[in-house]
Design a protein around this nucleic acid. Structure first.
Lengths: 154, 154
DNA sequence: TCGCTCCTTTGACTCCGTCCAATCAGCCCC
DNA sequence: GGGGCTGATTGGACGGAGTCAAAGGAGCGA
């Protein structure tokens, strides 16, 4: 699920991102373009520091604070999604169809789980008077690799 | 949902907790007894620092680190539950039937949502080869109060 | 009651996220 | 094509949450 770390971001990547930013009502600044291009090129779920250090390795140095700002904006306009995996560092991924996450308790891997409905809220809750915006499901357990390893050790 | 903060913990409270600790296979130490008694007496979802400061106010001063240790043990043996409400500070609650949580985006209130199944895992995920231990649902939206306030302001 | 073992406590440390203020740049309008 | 406004970026500093390690203390079986 974790895509390969991209080795470069081309001008075409970032300029393409610029159009999507303007279409979403955001100014097409360089930090936003590079972060959005990186999310597009790098499948999976990434922490802020991972994004920041990867951008630095690719020659697009960006302060941590800027990555936070950009991600907040991208999430606000729907171009990125916070990947809810419970307490701990926040993870982000590129926007796609509404889905859930499986977290491996052994190795920490995060895997997308398709949502049967595909739109939120996909479940309903009996909370009188409340407006439910979304229902996020976090599955926990052992991934295939960790389950196999546990079976061998047992 | 947030219960009233208890004003005292009696010896009966803590000694009763002692029996449950031993039954669960844990030594009945004073920190564990007081934390467990507090969770019993204080309904709702509480952060580590809230528990620590409340214990201090009740005359049972306990270092933050000890609260962490105790809660880890209580969760391990099933006497307490981590209340999953997404990134941020971890919340704990006393053990009860398996359920989910509704988080108000306006005021941050956390409300228990009964699970239709009542046991985990209550949902299944299509993750090939993986063993699913639990499926935790986090509902987000606006509670009745915040929804009413938003309607008035609109 | 003794002594082993596990638990508690203390202090420091790391990491994540936020706040603030000054500087910079995108983009609208002329 | 250029000027200026407005919003974005940047850097430093701060606070909170959680973790680590080691020494002292308490529970509980013998």
């Amino acid at each position: 699920m974790e895509g390969p770390r991209p080795t470069r971001l081309t001008d075409a990547d970032t300029s393409g991102a610029g159009g999507r930013l303007r279409a979403a009502g955001l100014r097409a600044t360089r930090p936003r373009q590079t972060v959005l291009a990186l999310l597009d090129a790098w499948a999976g779920h990434h922490a802020v520091d991972d994004l920041s250090s990867t951008l630095a390795d690719l020659g697009h140095r960006l302060p941590r604070q800027s990555v936070y700002n950009v991600l907040d904006d991208l999430v606000r306009v729907g171009l990125a999604l916070p990947a809810d995996t419970g307490p701990g560092r926040a993870l982000y991924e590129r926007a796609s169809e509404w889905h859930h996450h499986f977290v491996c308790l052994g190795c920490g891997t995060v895997v997308d789980v398709p949502c049967a409905i595909g739109a939120k809220p996909c479940l309903d809750a009996a909370v009188p008077g409340a407006e439910i915006d979304e229902a996020q499901v976090i599955f926990r357990g052992r991934c295939a690799d960790c389950a196999a390893r546990a079976a061998v050790e047992a």
